[in-house]
Write a protein that binds this DNA or RNA. Structure first.
Length: 121
DNA sequence: ATAGTGACTTTAC
DNA sequence: GGTAAAGCCACTA
């Protein structure tokens, strides 16, 4: 027997910390993926639904870093007051995507009382 | 381990 | 209706 089995690159077991952060990321992405078309949620809401209370900023950073590798409706995530919080030129794309789903975006802002996502309580 | 940073939120002017 | 400051949590250097 060979107790030190070598292991192909990329199959190294993740450290507990890595697993945890990955799981958080997955939960965030999964939550965002649950936002129905034509509705929007805010960062804090996504964080809470994902089991990460008070971690709205984390949600934002996750999207910024992982949206390229996961097809999630990132554009349905807004600030707590319904404003587009995204920086850079993609803000325009976000508004466009939302309007394409029937969400009214006026002056970079969405009325959460009309389009806010209400997950099963 | 410390310090800086951010696609956030809330409270106070 | 705005802008400013502080609080917040997790990531990154």
């Amino acid at each position: 027997m060979n107790p030190k089995k070598t292991r192909p690159i990329g199959q190294r077991p993740k450290s507990p910390a890595e697993q945890l952060q990955d799981e958080r990321v997955q939960r965030v992405l999964a939550t965002i993926d649950c936002i129905p078309e034509g509705q929007v949620a805010y960062y804090g809401q996504v964080a809470e639904e994902a089991g990460l209370p008070r971690s709205a900023r984390f949600v934002g950073s996750v999207l910024k870093r992982f949206v390229n590798n996961h097809s999630v409706p990132w554009h349905r995530v807004l600030g707590s007051d319904g404003t587009i919080r995204v920086t850079g030129g993609i803000a325009r794309d976000q508004a466009k995507l939302l309007r394409a789903e029937g969400v009214k975006v006026t002056n970079g802002r969405v009325k959460l009382s009309d389009f806010g996502w209400k997950p099963d309580a």
